[in-house]
Nucleic acid binder design. Sequence first.
RNA 1: GCCGCUGUGGUGAAAUGGUAAACACAGCAGACUUAAAAUCUGCUGGGAUAACAUCCCUUGUCGGUUCGAGUCCGACCAGCGGCACCA
Length: 869
Amino acid sequence: MLIRPSAPSCTPLMSEQQRKAFPFSEFEPKWQDEWEAKKAFHTPNPGDADFDATKPKYFVLDMFPYPSGAGLHVGHPEGYTATDIIGRFKKMSGFNVLHPMGWDAFGLPAEQYAIKTGQHPRITTEQNIEGFRGQLKRLGFAYDWDREVNTTDPGYFKWTQWIFLKLYNAYVNEEGKARPISELEAQGLSRAEIDSRRLAYISEAPVNWCPELGTVLANEEVVDGKSEVGGFAVERRPMRQWMLRITAFAQRLIDELDGLDWPESIRLLQRNWIGRSEGAHVTFQVAQADAEITVFTTRPDTLFGATYMVIAPEHSLVDQIAAPEQAAAIAAYRRVVGSKSDLERTELAKEKTGVFTGAYAINPVNNEQIPIWIADYVMMGYGTGAIMAVPAHDTRDFEFATKFDLPVKQVVQPPAGKEWQGYTDDGIAINSGFLDGLPTAEAKKKIAVWLEEKGLGKGTTNFKLRDWLFSRQRYWGEPFPIVWEDGNHHGIPESELPLLPPTLEDFRPTGTPEPPLSKATDWVRYSDTATRELNTMPQWAGSCWYYLRYCDAQNSDRFVGEEAEKYWMGGGKPGGVDLYVGGTEHAVLHLLYARFWHKVLFDLGYVSTPEPFQRLVNQGLIMGEDGQKMSKSRGNVVNPDDVVKEYGADALRLYEMFMGPLEQVKPWSMKGVEGVYRFLARVWRLVMVQHEESGVWSLSPALQDVPANKQLTKALHETIKKCGEDIEKLSFNTAISQMMVCTNAFTGAEIKPASAIVTFLKVLSPFAPHLAEELNARIASQFPDLAVKGFLSDSVWPTYDPAALIEDEVEVVFQVNGKLRDKVRVPIAASKEEIEALALASTRVQEFMEGKPAKKVIVVPGKLVNIVV
RNA sequence: GCCGCUGUGGUGAAAUGGUAAACACAGCAGACUUAAAAUCUGCUGGGAUAACAUCCCUUGUCGGUUCGAGUCCGACCAGCGGCACCA
């Protein structure tokens, strides 16, 4: 290895170089080039010539970035460094490591930017990806770039469209498993029946239409009645849309979380989002009308306390049952409710509103007539859009009943001392006929049986989760592989994939719900009788399966080769990816969607595990130096490029890991960056010395081929042990502090034992790979037999010697009544009795015992003695 | 309102129920230097005291379990995040 000398002192470069504590700006790009040229992190697949089937696999995944024009922010390298350390460590520990990177590049921001600048999104997307790739390469991440994926690449979205066709041509059977639609065809079901069961289906339901963005949005993309992207107003309007039947998997999406190593908080977030609740459907006859209303309730035991009924204002039964004299009031109320945005509807939630329909329902348990109201506190989209109101034991019903002076009837006896009005917890049934005296849980069971016997209702489970609105009226997304003919839709043949979007000069939204693809009249026309679907898929589509594509990114025959999928996604656990690191912002959306698609592919036999991600870790947000969230408007944004320029990639990597626990929210500190930078410089100076005048670095004469003394050996082996354990636990901050301790010990030694330092560099290399490789190469120039030949990243993680950790003497603490009173160094082998005798003999101990006899003596060998008097 | 997470020095933080504050930042002092920067060495939770001897206090608050609690249990307070008329 040739060593590039520093620039001579007379050049202007010199002052620049001299400021740096070590010449990272020279060797960091050098090693990045070297890794790339030698494909140091190329990962062979099963079947490849250089594949070693005897090694276990480790699939470590980052949430791939959306390549924006702003470039990387400091949050990206946080998770990416964590996975890089793990990946490099696992590689050194004998694993076949899959650690890839790619781009989630379809979607609204790119298109909004394109519209603003007039540039085609394909061009801006390419530029942004170039920028991101360059930035990531400058951080020295050990990706296999041959596996890079890009969701906007036809070779990629071909398979996104292919998976959509699988969803389109599948249904869920009685056992809750996805099966091919051909099974239904074989049963002779009609076209309409089949279409109503597809996992991808057409719906005319009201959707979130955002005029400003010119598209509909999924419920999840609407926050407080405004679009998540841009914060524009969103209105409800009925439109013909593609939906994905994720609700058919609601129960499995809850149940199958159990086998995963995910943070409990994220599992809870998903469970709450899916929102399972158990209850019953109860059917009420409408008095003097040929109509019935079915309600969903979680408290069927309170049926005797139902004193009125509420149906959602937009419910279709309203017109059918409303009394003529109420028609005007109902129409007026519906107008008011309809004009409210979702935001207003939540803001005005405090004050209950509603209108009496003039109709009555008959309570099946006692045949009492109860009034039917409409009110916007009942949602059309949840349950049946109708409720039985039990004001005595439901907070909302109680508020409503109080406002409109409706009767309140107690049917639950709360524990002594509690007010029954508005009591919503469990108690004992009263005023409830055959339920009287039963505790809530039993009353629920009894009424369910009763309802079922009479054919009036039955136990049901309800979910908050809605089906996934999957179409967008935008240009920059995957076109649907669907054509329309005579009012019917069907999938295009797989041989016609990928279906490219048309090349449009004008890709702006039309300003109407008509998608921009409608402008490409030639493209739209599929045949004389058929036209193409004009919607595109949402941004989430591409990220639902990208982890699978990494396993076999170049495959042109299949979305992922069978053998590659079995190897990288297999391993005997429910989830295939061994470690997935990313931000909490994707806790529900992306992670739920990806799990849903994966289960469909699993049921249909295309993948070998029921879950995509076995272990999930969320990195915490990095705040600005002021403790506030980083944002342009606050001016507290830290640009990773600036940090790399000033302190180097290794310092950035190390600082991001040293800040604190990975999962914690933590503020940035430039002083902290300087701290780890100084640490790296100290490591550098273990090996190198700088000539005072010329500034040229050369190998330190203190570096010698001698064995390390006992104290240094201990520090080194403790570091090997602790770093290995801490990397597995993702406790990078404590691993780094241990390396600092070790370095401080080496710094204090007159002679630097070269082979011990090489071992230390192996431990350091996953964290600061450039510096470690450079120093190893420098050492190799003088001690070729001591240094690692080739890349440190290809070397084997050192094993520690437990014997080296043991000291001859340990400090033992003497306590009296739990308070520290004396310390003594004793031989490691000292027996319990010997230590106890020493403690009792201590004058300090005796002083605090005040002559009293010891009631109890606790001895923890090697640790402490506690004397209780 | 409901659910979850977090509360430790001036700051980021560390601590299998066993010496609270490792490691780093900031600060102070010293060495080197004509000087500064860099580097190296030392000190650095609060209080009492002449004392670097010694004692007392200290992990959001209050209780409990234990020989011993930052750690386990209970109640409360504060901050952050999620959901929010979900029947």
